[in-house]
Amino acid sequence: MTTVIYAVLILGALAVVFGAVLAFAAKKFAVEKDPRQEAIAEILPGANCGGCGFAGCSAYADAIVTSGARTNACVPGGNATAGKIAEIMGVQAEETERCVAQVKCSGTTGHMKKKLIYSGIPDCNAAMQLGGGSGANGCPYGCLGYGSCVKACPFDAIYLKDGIAHVDHEKCKGCMTCASVCPKGIIIKVPYAADITVACSSKDPGRVLRNYCDLGCLACHICEKICEYDAIRVIDGRAVIDYTKCVSCGKCATKCPRKLIRDARLNLENEE
């Protein structure tokens, strides 16, 4: 009988002591959190993609509340999330334009010459160590096709096809995590609504480019001349579209001798 009493007493005493210590610690080490921060963190998609420019979703929620970060910085969440955050913070919602990533290269297998046969680690950044710092590609600017961006994408929106990376526009949220891992820096942000895209990043003049790629931009300036809106220009040896001016008329796409100015509407028709 005494054993039972001792057992109850000892365990009871231990429990009381620990309970008291924990209660004290809860007061002493209490972290005051703004309830709005938790509410915002709950709304955010939780992909921790870093598209907003902060370390992750909770870091962004913290920045909104404590240092007044923009409420529309969440790219995957888009307007819906921005609206909810603005509601919590009691400010006017700012509009965001949906953007997607685009891989600016069309050098598919067979069209772009290879400098060497690479059989090392299947990773673009590892491949970059070889071939004079530009990988196995003949083109110093083109997609290496080892899929570092595919691995980095938190939304599973990039895939490899014919030796280069492609972006699935429906899955892409425009966080641009892929662009940060691409050693060639050829993944850019374009508006989701944009129909016309240029798929080449080469800065070499046409006569040099012809040596290694059948499809790249020759900097022939035809698109520049035909555009009525001054929206496409040849800068650094390749065509670049200014999406604030482009009206998606599609004229440049029809006249491009290399067919690397793509009109998404035409592609759809072709596929059908």
Binding site: T3, A7, I10, A25
Partner: peptide, 27 residues
Amino acid sequence: LHLEFLQTLAFVLIIASLVQFVEMFLQ
């Protein structure tokens, strides 16, 4: 007190409280 049979129980109690404490401290 010849309460060796309580060891597992008491130790679990101690560890649980300790971890709670460490968690609060780290936070």
